[in-house]
């Protein structure tokens, strides 16, 4: 039937028109940069001479250099340390707070609002404030002096260990609220009949929490752990840049800052791209390894869902 054929052609054009802007922009912002990053990571930029600005193929040279660079190893180590410290803290605290609030503690609404406030504040605002707070003559040290804890009055951001500690505190402070809110929302749909059954079996509230409620949160805990892990490896640039710029020395350098500085401070596009390519690889690994396993069980995984952050 020609009429129908015509209609379907019109429909096809329509579909294409509706999708085109979104697809073109995704190609520009995601697809092209990923391809170009991989290309750049295998080339180096010719800086001087007749061919200045051209690309020269160097194979895995950039990667070899990066793997030998002590600063890269140090940055990667810091990312791992942040992963080991921040992710468990965020997961445990958000589950604990959510479970407590869900038990109808007095004032739980107020607590929920308070815990969520940092999520709304811009990282730049948080970073600048924490920077001022932890100055030698800052408000934290004034508070310690007032509490007669003079041993704790140090120049927080001038020493490696304490600067790293401040970074950890700031990340947990800012990120916790989001975790609490998604855990709480999951708790709202916990199967009440199971809790009732547990109660009839004589569980106390502590046992109920550990044996009945938390196991039901498995999926959301897993989801949040993946999310926090990705955050810690790939979304911390703003925190570090505002608070310490990697210092003192290189003690708070992370992968993203390494990639950023190689590109925009030292004009080493190839090295920067090699690190970016590694970050892409890591994200793919974290996302798709578990995904492949789960694909059989669930076709459409919300595990992908991520809320953009600054």
């Amino acid at each position: 039937m020609p009429a129908r054929l015509e209609k379907s052609a019109v429909t096809r054009v329509r579909i294409a028109l509706y999708l085109a802007p979104a697809l073109l922009l995704s190609l520009l912002v995601f697809f092209y940069p990923i391809c170009k990053t991989i290309y750049n990571s295998l080339h180096e930029l010719v800086l001087g001479g007749a061919n200045a600005g051209a690309s020269r193929f160097v194979g895995l040279g950039n990667f070899r250099f990066v793997f030998k660079d002590p600063l890269f190893a140090e940055s990667l180590g810091h990312n791992f340390l942040l992963f080991l410290v921040c992710v468990p803290l965020l997961v445990v605290l958000s589950v604990a707070v959510a479970v407590l609030l869900n038990q109808g503690m007095t004032g739980w609404r107020a607590y929920r609002t308070i815990v969520f406030i940092p999520y709304v504040l811009p990282i730049v605002v948080v970073g600048i404030s924490f920077g001022f707070m932890f100055q030698l003559n800052g408000v934290i040290n004034t508070a310690f002096a007032a509490l007669k804890l003079d041993a704790l009055r140090v120049d927080w951001l001038a020493k490696s260990n304490s600067a790293f500690l401040v970074l950890v505190v700031m990340i947990v402070w800012k990120e916790l609220g989001f975790g609490v809110v998604i855990m709480l929302a999951r708790l709202l749909s916990v199967d009440e009949s199971l809790i009732e059954a547990g109660r009839l079996d004589g569980c106390n509230s502590w046992q109920l929490t550990l044996r009945v409620i938390v196991p039901q949160m498995k999926e959301i805990i897993y989801f949040y752990t993946v999310l926090a892990t990705i955050t810690v490896f790939t979304w911390l640039f703003n925190y570090v840049f505002v608070l310490t710029r990697g210092g003192p020395g290189t003690s708070t350098y992370i992968l993203e800052l390494y990639a950023y500085n190689q590109a925009f401070r030292y004009q080493n596009r190839g090295l920067s791209s090699a690190v970016a390519a590694l970050i892409i690889l890591a994200v793919l690994l974290v996302t798709f390894l578990p995904e492949l396993r789960r694909l059989a069980a669930r076709k459409e995984g919300i595990e992908h869902m991520r809320v953009p952050r600054g």
């Binding site: 940069p33 990923i34 750049n40 990705i230 993203e256 950023y260 869902m305």
Partner: peptide
């Protein structure tokens, strides 16, 4: 589309800047 949600901005900066 879903898988793009995890791509961090840092990796797009250099290619987009040059472009």
């Amino acid at each position: 589309i879903a898988s793009l949600m995890l791509i961090p901005p840092i990796i797009a900066i250099v290619p987009l800047f040059e472009f």
